[in-house]
Design a protein around this nucleic acid. Structure first.
Lengths: 191, 191
DNA sequence: CGCGAGCACGAACGATGTTCGGAAAAACTA
DNA sequence: TAGTTTTTCCGAACATCGTTCGTGCTCGCG
């Protein structure tokens, strides 16, 4: 029952989400209003409350969608091969994901939206990403518990810097490889 | 001439800034209004425009003040001694500064305030910090140009994680030392 | 047909940052 | 001291924001 309705419901929800992403990319993650978003899908602001409980619920859906995208990308990462090459591939994948959409990076990894806290269900997706990353690092020989913390801190910070600094050619590529070298070097000769 | 006036002016500006920091610490960096801030210093909102051009100007003054504090702290860092110990001291100083005031960390290193861009004069202070950090790292043997980028990315990221995760005893201390080890290890045996 | 559920809207509320004009107070000048 | 100018402060108001309420509208189903 109510199949048609549920389908139309979901479709329009996705249209609103897509429009919200477009606004976030063009006007900044928090630089758009519900009235603008509604207008961009041919509605008025109150009608959005049929599909979402409020603006924070929209951010929450975007948060979940972003982490689902990341989960899919790192799920395709090859874990076999030379460890340092595996790590370089992972580093590049993370960095690209961070950099290719500044608004998404701010929503997922920085805490840019003033009142917003992700829901438990959305936050679980974020923890899935950390778990998957831990697998990748462990397969490459980085099995210490703090490796994943250092890794995420480093690459989140690097991506933030790239967003605010000038893109100096292949500078970031070299920086990435050097960061991976740092990880590998710290693992090899230590205790 | 107009000494008395200028002095009172500056004093009240500082009172407003202090009250803004208190509000930022208790209600969140963006969780306060001009009306609240004015009330906390015995004024009404429009009167704040005598001392600041608007809310962003207040954020800008806070931004400059925060970087002046950091500049003073890292200016006192000892640069003589065993390199790894110098680096550990610097790491601890940076991390402590980041962590001891979450609102300040968000204002200075993350881009949490929606419309705010620091003024050129305030941004120059941020570049002074980077320059000073470059000196410290170079004195300790880390003189590659990308060292400072990796350093700031790593510690900004670690501080952000600490702010959102649970404080697990001396876990962060070990993480810091391990990060410094990573830097030193990457410098010693490489090219 | 009638009816109930889902959808969309206008109007409005409280709160926000900001502007304007005028009143009070302070500082300076003669 | 008296007059004038500058500085400080505030009430009122504006546009915009997220959000709520009440009301129609349009379907599909009996």
């Amino acid at each position: 029952m109510s199949d048609r309705r549920a389908q139309r419901h979901a479709a329009t929800r996705q249209e609103i989400l897509d429009a919200a992403w477009n606004l976030a990319r063009s006007h900044g993650l928090t630089g758009w209003s519900l009235r603008e978003l509604a207008a961009s899908v041919g509605m008025r602001a109150p009608s959005l409350y049929v599909y979402f409980d409020g603006k924070d619920a929209i951010y929450d859906a975007m948060f979940a969608q972003g982490y689902r995208q990341l989960l899919e990308r790192i799920g395709r990462l090859p874990t076999a091969g030379e460890p340092v090459e595996v790590l370089r591939g992972a580093a590049r994948e993370f960095f690209d994901f961070y950099v290719e959409d500044a608004a998404r990076h701010q929503l997922l990894f920085l805490r840019v939206v003033p009142g917003f806290e992700p829901s438990p269900e959305s936050y679980a997706l974020a923890r899935d990403v950390v778990a998957r990353l831990r697998e990748v690092l462990a397969d490459a020989g980085l099995d210490r518990p703090e490796a994943v913390d250092l890794w995420t801190a480093l690459f989140t910070g690097l991506a933030s810097q790239q967003a605010s600094n000038d893109p100096g050619g292949d500078r970031w590529q070299r920086l990435l490889d050097r960061a991976v070298d740092m990880f590998v070097a710290s693992e090899a000769p230590a205790t």
